[in-house]
Design a protein around this nucleic acid. Structure first.
Lengths: 155, 155
DNA sequence: GAGTATAATGAGAACGAGTCTCACTAACAA
DNA sequence: TTGTTAGTGAGACTCGTTCTCATTATACTC
């Protein structure tokens, strides 16, 4: 079996902002300073982040504005919301901005880490899911494949 | 490609109650009337259910007790909690009581439906995830593979 | 069966993540 | 610059879920 794709350096900061700007523009949203800051914080984390993570990294951002802007970014296809068992939702860049990947979710501390799988595994999963979806009259958009267990810190 | 396993008739009601009783007993929990009613409601649904679903099916069960007992059942390995983007968490029987399966999650209405995949697909996914987990020092317990999209009603 | 210890129940209070409101400010267009 | 519209931030609010505590059911011992 081949190795999984590396996490890989995503877009450069300027390319990232350009891509986000395009997506916001398509929905007639403005790319304001607050949104730019938010994108910077998520990019700097390089991991799914929660609201407390964001506010800790940028204490001048108002929580209400952060939530509102995460919603705007989600609607624009810039970020994905990951709901786990923890107290807070996690946010990370959506697929086209971040290469397709999955999550290791710690059942103890709720931490979420990204992992990549082989392309051929992805293809097999997609084919199998598409078949199952077809039988149920379900129109698929994307799949999520998460591994639950104990992270290195909690094990 | 072979067909996915059928949803299949799970354990008989008496076998189900026996299995739940054993799991509760292992944790020194009592299998009370309220918990038995709760198990019956979840079994009757044959689908992941929310708290409102449960209370609608058994209005005499107190919500606070239902939440408490769902927690007890979860700790005992009887039910799994599925957190989606919807307002409520979903609950269904855990893996050994229900055969291994995955979910079709509607991004519009939040409905969750169970699907089964081929055993060989499951094996490929497990092997690939185990490899990725090993690289991260992660101790895996289980995987979850969900397909997000539009259900037959919302499409 | 009586007595005792402990777990479970249920009603309602409390909690808290996330959303909404609204007066104010920043961003774009002409 | 001026007008129009979108975005901001502080705090109130919502509502799913958890907690509290007095009461009740269960199981164990004698």
């Amino acid at each position: 079996m081949t190795r999984g794709r590396a996490a890989g350096p995503p877009l450069s900061t300027s390319d990232l902002h350009a891509a986000v700007g395009v997506r916001l523009g398509r929905r007639a949203y403005r790319y304001t300073n607050g949104r730019r800051r938010l994108v910077d914080v998520i990019a700097a984390a390089g991991q799914p982040v929660t609201l407390p993570d964001i506010v800790a990294a940028a204490p001048d951002l108002a929580p209400s504005s952060v939530y509102r802007n995460l919603d705007v970014l989600e609607r624009s296809g810039v970020v994905d919301r990951i709901v786990s068992n923890g107290d807070h939702a996690y946010f990370e860049f959506a697929e086209p901005l971040l290469s397709h990947h999955h999550h290791l979710i710690c059942v103890d501390c709720g931490a979420i880490e990204d992992v990549r799988l082989d392309d051929d595994v992805e293809a097999i999963v997609d084919r199998s899911l598409a078949e199952a979806a077809g039988r149920a009259g379900f129109r698929p958009l994307r799949h999520s494949l998460d591994l639950h267990g104990h992270c290195a810190d909690c094990a």
